[in-house]
Simulated assay, not measured.
Amino acid sequence: MTERHVVLRAIEEALAEVLEREVRDLPEDTGLFDDLRLDSSSVLELLLLVEESTGAVVDPENLDIDHLRTVRSFADYVAGLLHEGEAVT
């Protein structure tokens, strides 16, 4: 399994917990706010869960709203953090 697949799986598992429903095979262009209707507290929960499962450390200073637009942009952001030297599970 590639690093990106690990990240996507972690995001899906975190979204399932945040949304309290099964989430599978989400298209990467799914909007976190527009399509899934996440709000600020659910995004915070998502971030914490993904950090915990991947070992990535999100720096709030470097986090931009564009990193959270879609599943793809969030996965790219987390994969980039991991590529920069953060641990992968």
Score class of each variant (00 low, 15 high):
35 D>Q: 15
82 L>M: 10
22 E>S: 13
51 E>R: 05
80 G>S: 08
45 E>L: 08
82 L>V: 07
66 D>A: 09
50 V>C: 06
50 V>F: 01
77 Y>D: 06
33 F>S: 12
32 L>G: 01
18 V>E: 01
46 L>M: 09
42 S>G: 09
69 R>Y: 00
43 V>Q: 04
62 N>M: 10
50 V>S: 07
52 E>L: 05
51 E>V: 09
73 S>N: 15
50 V>E: 04
54 T>N: 06
10 A>W: 02
2 T>Y: 12
30 T>V: 08
16 A>W: 00
53 S>H: 06
79 A>F: 13
8 L>P: 04
36 L>N: 08
85 G>N: 12
30 T>H: 09
80 G>D: 11
6 V>I: 11
46 L>W: 03
17 E>C: 00
21 R>T: 12
63 L>D: 14
16 A>T: 03
38 L>P: 03
60 P>F: 00
34 D>F: 04
12 E>Q: 14
36 L>Y: 06
42 S>A: 14
43 V>P: 01
4 R>F: 10
88 V>I: 15
78 V>Q: 01
30 T>D: 08
22 E>Q: 12
56 A>K: 00
27 P>T: 00
14 A>S: 13
75 A>F: 04
39 D>V: 09
47 L>S: 03
64 D>Q: 11
40 S>T: 15
36 L>W: 07
29 D>S: 15
50 V>H: 03
42 S>C: 08
85 G>H: 08
72 R>P: 02
85 G>C: 12
22 E>D: 15
25 D>S: 14
29 D>T: 14
11 I>R: 02
63 L>H: 04
85 G>S: 13
8 L>H: 01
39 D>A: 13
34 D>H: 13
53 S>F: 06
2 T>C: 11
23 V>G: 03
23 V>F: 02
37 R>V: 06
58 V>H: 01
40 S>P: 02
74 F>C: 05
62 N>R: 14
52 E>W: 06
54 T>H: 02
29 D>I: 05
53 S>D: 13
81 L>K: 02
88 V>K: 10
11 I>V: 15
64 D>T: 09
83 H>E: 15
54 T>P: 01
37 R>M: 13
71 V>W: 01
23 V>T: 04
32 L>D: 02
81 L>Y: 05
62 N>P: 03
36 L>A: 13
49 L>M: 14
65 I>T: 13
59 D>A: 09
72 R>G: 07
64 D>K: 05
29 D>M: 08
19 L>M: 11
13 E>V: 11
41 S>F: 15
3 E>R: 14
53 S>W: 04
3 E>P: 05
9 R>M: 11
15 L>G: 03
4 R>D: 07
25 D>E: 15
82 L>K: 03
25 D>C: 08
39 D>G: 11
62 N>H: 10
2 T>V: 10
7 V>G: 00
21 R>M: 11
42 S>V: 06
55 G>I: 11
50 V>N: 01
